[in-house]
């Protein structure tokens, strides 16, 4: 890629309090990129994600942000579904309209344009018919679509998703991944997806950032997700194979 990165980590170290979690991260995100961030539990994926979102400042190094027009890129963030507080009965439309909050001044009503953008975002992920339903009454897949629509309503340059398929059944999981693929391929959106589900990233992303033992290794999918490397990281035999053109990553069965 010869384009200018929209986000660039330059020798960045990240951590909390007195503790550094990851060191010397150099990572570039380009327009229309599809990056998967993977790694074992507790490796620092969320720390890298927060730095990417701009909610965690680097302890060392620099993070540069510049979209095509020279201004910092807008990020549409899709958090983990269970991180939301759901006591209040917000409708799907209420939740999606939150994506427009940053562009509406205090005490001002939403404009027709804001409503149209929200409607289009809902239609994009096929939840237009759910607009009046309570968000907390939805299934996991419908909630995930709502959160993606909210992120799209912010008209982002980059869509960042944290564990978007966690806890979903096979059909919901596939549907969500196909929506993300569509947003990347047809709408040209730059996508960053954090997940611990290796098969998800193996079949969808262009590049992978593997967070492991305080470092981040960046590379192509087949380069990073090799049997040897994954076996070493997860300290168990891991088998990477292809079935009907789909990469499958599974632990090797114990012969005993």
């Amino acid at each position: 890629m010869t384009e200018t990165p929209i986000i660039e980590f330059q020798q960045v170290s990240l951590g909390y309090g007195g503790r550094t979690i990851v060191r010397d991260v150099s990572l570039s995100l380009f327009p229309n990129d599809f990056l998967g961030i993977v790694g074992p539990n507790g490796s620092g994926k969320t720390t890298v994600l927060r730095a990417l979102l701009g909610t965690l400042s680097p302890r060392k190094g620099e993070i540069r942000r510049a979209a095509a027009n020279g201004v910092p890129p807008t990020i549409g963030y899709v958090p983990q579904r269970d991180s939301l507080e759901l006591v209040l009965p917000l409708t799907v439309r209420d939740v999606v309209m939150m994506g427009r909050y940053a562009s509406v001044r205090p005490l001002r009503r939403f404009t027709a344009a804001d409503r149209r953008i929200a409607d289009e975002a809902m239609a994009h992920v096929d939840i237009g018919n759910l607009a009046g339903l309570s968000y907390r009454d939805l299934s996991g897949g419908q909630r995930q679509r709502t959160l993606i629509a909210r992120a799209l309503a912010a008209q982002p340059d980059i869509l960042v998703l944290d564990e978007p398929t966690n806890g979903m059944d096979l059909s919901s999981r596939t549907a969500i991944l196909e929506i993300i693929r569509h947003l990347h391929e047809h709408d040209g959106l730059t996508v960053v997806m954090v997940t611990h589900l290796l098969s998800d990233v193996a079949n969808y992303v262009n590049r992978i950032a593997l967070v492991e033992q305080g470092t981040v290794r960046l590379g192509a999918v087949d380069e990073i997700l090799s049997s040897d490397r994954l076996s070493a990281i997860y300290q168990m035999p891991v088998h990477v194979s292809e079935v009907h053109g789909v990469t499958v990553i599974v632990p090797e069965p114990d012969d005993e």
């Binding site: 979102l53 701009g54 909610t55 990020i75 963030y77 958090p79 991180s83 939301l84 507080e85 759901l86 209040l88 917000l90 939150m98 994506g99 909050y101 940053a102 509406v104 205090p106 005490l107 909210r150 912010a154 960042v160």
Partner: peptide, 22 residues
Amino acid sequence: LVFFRQFLFVSMDAETARTQGI
């Protein structure tokens, strides 16, 4: 009343609100 949206967004999903500049 003036900052109703900010209070509501932050009470439901503080992390995402922060990514939107709130």
